[in-house]
Design a protein around this nucleic acid. Structure first.
Length: 376
DNA sequence: ATACACGGCCGTCTTACTTCA
DNA sequence: TGTGAAGTAAGACGGCCGTGT
């Protein structure tokens, strides 16, 4: 099985040019996670040591879901579970490349993101992505030992794994760079999280993803905000994370995007409410004025109407000068011929300038054509 | 029709990190 | 300048639900 991740630019006509291409070609109809487990076995991507024997990420996923189902039936609460759960069967992940092959002092991070490398897409993409990582921290003794023990220089995927496993924890922020000792401890926690949990029973330990890992995930999220099992597995391998971590990251990312959109919607509705309130107040005032005018002037006076027009592309409403009393709107059917016409006459003056278009949250700076014209 | 596996969403907890007094 | 409290961001988890087999 060849499993790769093409990060180069595509010829797609879409606005986003960077796409992940999964070249995983399982032998037959191995589309389910279960079958991928079988395909992965023996390839040495995520070799593990532990009492429960071989374990890989997809198995862990299935185990995760089985545990969820079991807990569902179990009915035990969280606190009980954290203290009484059986040990996680994924004990210790090993890195499969000799530590000596990892550059200790790569170029500074100003060289750009790993996936933007010119060499991305080749078999060496995994190693290339090392550039820009903070490697001032030494790998933990445990990692060195493990890596030296079972390393496989022929595995490019494993070389990528070890890259991320070593740099994980050195996420480039100030505190991390100042506390190398903490990074070591964190790296240990990360590389053998399950084991630690098993040992001290302290429950979940939060891993802080490195900037590079987060950026990589962000790029992937831009392409598709959901992952199929293959993509999840490929990403997890690329980033040396457990598939569950990738899955959780995408879940949280979707939640954050949705929350942001909710905030945008809320802000829009608030402005819309304010606008309508003001409009209502103005119309009431005008009615009073008209009534006063009518009572003082017995002759009926025809008022000019205000015409509303709507932008067909974005449904933005604009107000024309009240010189005409009617407007004719012609809609066309699919064949392009005129289908029907509607005439709208509005006898009430209306303030212009508020878009009826619901705003969209563009997490990746995709501006709406009329966004700049929207009222502030 | 039913059971099951699986994945997404939601609410929540927890932890790392930042800000401020 | 160091420190602890409060706030925030984000990783992780369990439960629920919809969908496909």
């Amino acid at each position: 099985m060849e499993l790769g991740l093409s990060l180069g630019e595509t010829t797609s006509s879409s606005s986003r040019q960077q796409t992940f291409t999964f070249v995983d070609k399982p032998s037959t109809t191995s589309t389910t996670a279960t079958k991928m487990v079988n395909n992965n076995k023996g390839l040495g991507f995520c070799m593990s040591l532990g009492l429960s024997g071989f374990n890989n990420a997809t198995e862990e996923e299935q185990q995760h879901h089985r545990e969820r189902e079991v807990r569902k039936k179990d009915g035990r609460n969280d606190k009980e579970k954290r203290s009484t759960d059986l040990p996680d069967p994924s004990p210790l992940q090993l890195d499969l490349l000799p530590i000596a092959s990892v550059p200790r002092n790569p170029a500074p991070s100003t060289q750009g993101l790993p996936w933007l490398s010119e060499n991305a897409g080749s078999s060496g993409q995994l190693g290339v992505s090392v550039r820009g990582f903070d490697v001032n921290q030494s790998p933990s003794t445990e990692e060195v030992d493990d890596g030296a023990a079972v390393s496989s220089p022929n595995s490019t995927v494993s070389s990528f794994q070890i890259d991320f496993s070593i740099y994980r924890g050195g996420n480039g922020n100030k505190r991390d760079s100042e506390t190398a000792g903490l990074n070591e401890a964190e790296a240990d926690r990360t590389s053998s999280k399950a084991s630690d949990d098993d040992e001290n029973g302290s429950g979940r330990k939060k891993l802080r993803l490195s900037k590079e890992q987060s950026a990589f995930l962000e790029e992937s999220f831009k392409e598709h905000n959901t992952l199929n099992p293959k993509q999840k597995l490929a990403l997890s391998k690329q980033l040396n994370l457990r598939p569950r971590q990738v899955e959780v990251w995408f879940q949280n990312r979707r939640a954050r995007t949705k929350l942001k959109q909710t905030e945008v919607d809320c802000e829009y509705l608030k402005r819309r409410c304010d606008f309508l309130t003001e409009e209502n107040r103005r119309l009431h005032k005008e009615i009073q004025e008209l009534r006063a005018l009518k009572s003082s002037q017995p002759y009926y006076m025809q008022l000019p109407a205000t015409t509303l027009t709507m932008c067909p592309s974005c449904e933005r409403v604009a107000t024309t000068t009240p010189t005409t009393t009617t407007t004719t709107t012609t809609t066309t059917n699919n064949s392009g011929s005129a289908e029907n016409s509607t005439t709208t006459t509005i006898n009430t003056p209306i303030a212009s300038g508020f878009s009826l278009t619901k705003p969209r949250y563009y997490p990746f700076s995709h501006p709406h054509p009329h966004q700049s014209a929207a009222p502030s």
